[in-house]
Structure formats: structure tokens, C-alpha cells
């Protein structure tokens, strides 16, 4: 904890300075409050509305996020492994995975609404589409990067394909997989939020849009603040899991 404070002390000073500056600009009416709200009024908004914000909207966003993220990781790892084992699958699907990233997701979303209606699944679909790609690419690259000398060493001991995969390919792919996972976990949250803009009746993305319609900048920023904090926590969790799993990397 002490280390964290030390490492981020300059950043914290920077954030506090910005907030003080914004507060001053708004209070002295240099900038109107509906453009940028004063940090204190955002804080006020969160305190006043915390029950619906947390128990209704955050809960909805988190359900979309969790389902989407789990599907993306499962399917992404599954596809990466099958591409690793089958050249045919790789040749057939890798370009499709790449192209899926070139499609502007906002443009696809009306289709998702058409397919899944306003149910949770239209948001899940956007979430999956956002986070699937980093998982597939990172896992696949990690599996492929395996040094052939290591494979020869295990083969010389009489190892079969399954043993080589379990004892060599998987641990070798883990660092790359975790890089993908950290990106995907943040993208998933973004995906869930975008999904809600397109049509929803709850969730932090929906909330911020409704507040924007009411010209309530504090409300918009309140949901942004919550989303950001959640994003940081999720990223930190993924990093922690990475550190725990790749303990050998930290010891030097």
C-alpha cells in the first residue's frame, strides 16, 4: 500500500490539482455547470443517488459485463487452441477474427438489437465482440511462440503431444494470454456500456445517456466515475491474478 502511494503520488497530486481547477472554473462561472460539472456536485450526485446507481445500474452493467467476458474468454481460448492445432481452422477463421475488428461496432449494433431485442443479450453481444479479439490473438500468439528447442527436449524424453501441450505450450502462452486478458477485461466494460446506449432500460451506460438528455452533467459524470473505478478494480484484479500465476517472473 505504501509502495502504491509512493509510486502514484505524482499522479494523485495531478488529479487533485485538476479537480481543484475545475471546481474553481465552475464556481467562478467561467465554465457553465452543464458543460463540466464541479467535482463536488458529481460527488453529491453519487452520494444522493447511490442506491439506484449501485443496486440497479451498476448491477445491470456488471451482469452484461460478466456474461460477455466469460463467453469471450471461453470462446477466445477455445478458438486459439483449435487454430493452434489445425492449420485448416487457422486459415479459415483467423482472417475472420481480424476482420471482425475492422467493423465499427456501433454500426453493427442495430443488428444486435434486431436479433436480440432489448434483452440483456444485445449488450452481451457487443461485449463479446469487443473483448473476443484480444483474447484470441494473445492466446494464439502465445501458443505459437513456443521455442522449438524446448519441444525437441521434451520429445527426446519421449513426451507425447498432449504432454508437450500441457507442460510446455500452456505455461509458455500464459504471459501473452494475460496481456490479452487485461485488455479484454477493460474492453468488456466498454462494450457493456456501449451496448446500453443502443437500447436499454438500466445500466450505467443507459443512465449516463438519460442524464445527458436531461442536461444533467453531474449525472453523466457520476456514471463515468463509477465505470472508471470499476474498470480500475477489474484491471487490478486481472493484474493480481497475473502476478500470482506468473510468480517466477517477479523473482530476480
Amino acid at each position: 500500500m505504501k509502495n502504491l502511494l509512493k509510486q502514484y503520488s505524482l499522479f494523485i497530486v495531478f488529479v487533485v490539482l485538476i479537480m481543484v481547477l475545475v471546481e474553481y472554473l465552475v464556481r467562478s462561472k467561467i465554465v457553465p455547470a452543464f458543460i463540466i460539472p464541479a467535482p463536488t456536485s458529481v460527488a453529491n450526485h453519487i452520494v444522493e443517488q447511490w442506491r439506484p446507481l449501485i443496486f440497479e445500474h451498476l448491477k445491470a452493467t456488471m451482469s452484461e459485463f460478466s456474461i460477455g467476458f466469460i463467453i469471450a474468454v471461453t470462446a477466445g481460448v477455445g478458438l486459439a487452441v483449435s487454430m493452434y492445432f489445425s492449420k485448416t481452422i487457422e486459415k479459415m477463421l483467423y482472417p475472420a477474427v481480424l476482420i471482425s475488428q475492422m467493423i465499427p461496432i456501433i454500426a453493427l449494433s442495430p443488428i444486435f438489437v434486431l436479433w436480440f431485442g432489448y434483452s440483456i443479450w444485445s449488450k452481451v453481444a457487443v461485449t463479446v465482440l469487443m473483448s473476443f479479439f484480444p483474447i484470441v490473438v494473445a492466446t494464439y500468439d502465445g501458443l505459437k511462440s513456443c521455442d522449438k528447442d524446448y519441444i525437441e527436449l521434451l520429445r527426446s524424453m519421449g513426451a507425447n503431444k498432449r504432454q508437450i501441450f500441457m507442460k510446455l505450450n500452456i505455461p509458455m502462452a500464459l504471459p501473452s494470454f494475460f496481456s490479452g486478458l487485461k485488455i479484454a477485461i477493460v474492453y468488456s466494460l466498454v462494450g457493456a456500456t456501449i451496448g446500453e446506449w443502443l437500447g436499454a432500460s438500466e445500466g450505467l451506460g443507459y443512465y449516463s445517456r438519460r442524464m445527458s438528455g436531461d442536461l444533467n452533467a453531474s449525472g453523466v459524470f457520476a456514471s463515468i466515475v463509477i465505470l472508471t473505478v470499476v474498470g480500475i478494480i477489474l484491471f487490478a484484479l486481472a493484474s493480481l491474478l497475473e502476478k500470482r500465476t506468473l510468480r517466477w517472473k517477479n523473482r530476480l
Partner: peptide, 19 residues
């Protein structure tokens, strides 16, 4: 001879860094 019959030590030490 078949794979797994003799002990082989390649040029590089090839220790598994995660083990």
C-alpha cells in the same frame, strides 16, 4: 533406438523458467 531411450542435454540449458 526410439525417442525417450537416451538422456539428451542440448546446447542451451532450456530450463523451464516457470518451474
Amino acid at each position: 533406438v526410439t525417442l525417450g531411450d537416451v538422456g539428451y542435454m542440448p546446447q542451451k540449458d532450456l530450463l523451464f523458467p516457470w518451474r
